[in-house]
Design a protein around this nucleic acid. Structure first.
Lengths: 227, 227
DNA sequence: CGCAGTCTGTCGCCCAGGCGACAATTCGGT
DNA sequence: ACCGAATTGTCGCCTGGGCGACAGACTGCG
């Protein structure tokens, strides 16, 4: 699958990919394992070889804020800037996953030596910046309904499997997680999802969301919405 | 002033800075002029030599969402990924400013040839990513009061001038702009600022905010807040 | 130095949606 | 296959803060 422009490993030339992975140490994770947590001092750049990771923070009052999901091929961990304070997000495996770890020094040296990889890395960061900006704008501009609808739509477009007219999201999400991604509370998510289901826009089976009427979903979004 | 790690030009080695600027075309802007607008097809990387820029989007219902302010020395415009759709934010000069423009090709080539500059560029993007992440988390975790207080605090810490115990923000902000940065509405900003003033935490003169009691401000923030 | 246009302060109404409380389901681990 | 734990569905109450409407204060341009 031609995974979006965030698929760093996938876009890398074969030789370069091999060279980079040669510098890395592998690590296996089971669902629920953490790659690292807020405050961890351990540095290094990571590549997700397989599986799915959840990036989030926890607010002082215990609320989780999910920042994004990481899919196979993506780089992460390079944005942890002022090493002094340690990692600034939690990264947890949503399912059986495998990551490759490279030291910061090695990763930087690799990019120094492979300018095209460095460009790719910048592009990846740029994409993430753009996504984050969108999320932020939506957060202040849209109401709860539109935020949830947009999230589903977005996940469908970027991480969905198409099957004659319908799109099934690859990620398995609880209402609580949707709430944590949209800043809406859990009960409200349940209500909105219920409504969307009543409108025959989507259906849910075993915690998997399937978009049945992408057109109507899209239209719902663009009635009172932003790009 | 040792401006934060976002000061790309400032951190660059003297020779490199000169080399980069040699590739650039200058452009002067008066308050209110746009560097580019959403949808503009014109590409290129920009360096802010002097002045202050405001980055924002406008939602379909006309609400402005301010994403950040750009200070002298910063790079921008490199994050506009899928050139197809053109620029994704508006950039307007808050005051008399000067920018240097480099074509994408030239900028990328420059970074290819100067790995240390490329590292710096990544760091800059990482910082921005971190800032954006914080904003986002605050947006979902904090109430209006905390959001406004944090914004003032943040601007004070990063772009404030210290003068025996007080900190004056360098940026001149209207209540509407604070509203646009925090996702709170204008009247509420006025109310909160009024309260902060009544509490003797800050004072405002000619639209310039001065923090008189940073300690108390900080304490207000951390009573019901997030990092 | 005056005036038009912006910005600030203040009220009051009103509703989206947060929150607590359960009951009913559904998972997933052993 | 079973059982405890986690998730989903549903109510109703209650409040933070959005929004409209002005009046008064700046402010900066002509």
């Amino acid at each position: 699958m031609a995974n979006a422009p965030t698929d760093f490993l996938g876009q890398l030339a074969t030789v370069e990919r091999a060279a980079l992975l040669r510098l890395a140490k592998r690590r296996l994770l089971r669902r629920g394992d953490f790659v690292f947590r807020v405050g961890d001092k351990k540095r290094g750049a990571y590549l997700l070889l397989r599986g799915r990771l959840k990036f989030f923070r926890v607010t002082p009052d215990g609320r989780e804020v999910i920042l994004w999901f990481c899919f196979a091929g993506e780089v992460f961990g390079i944005s942890e800037v002022p090493a002094a304070k340690g990692r600034r997000v939690n990264v947890e495996a949503c399912e059986e996953s495998e990551v490759a770890v490279v030291t910061d020094a090695a990763f930087n040296r690799f990019l120094d030596d492979h300018p095209s990889a460095a460009r790719l890395c910048r592009r990846t960061m740029a994409v993430r910046l753009g996504t984050l900006t969108n999320t932020l704008v939506n957060l202040v501009a849209d109401d709860a309904y539109a935020r949830v609808a947009k999230l589903v739509h977005h996940l469908g477009m970027h991480h969905g499997t198409r099957l004659n007219g319908t799109i099934t999201l690859e990620v398995v999400l609880t209402h609580q997680e949707i709430a944590d991604m949209t800043g809406v509370n859990r009960q409200t998510v349940t209500r909105i999802l219920g409504d969307l289901r009543a409108k025959r826009v989507l259906s849910i089976q075993r915690r998997r969301i399937r978009i049945d009427d992408a057109a109507k979903l899209n239209q719902l979004i663009h009635s009172t919405a932003s790009p």
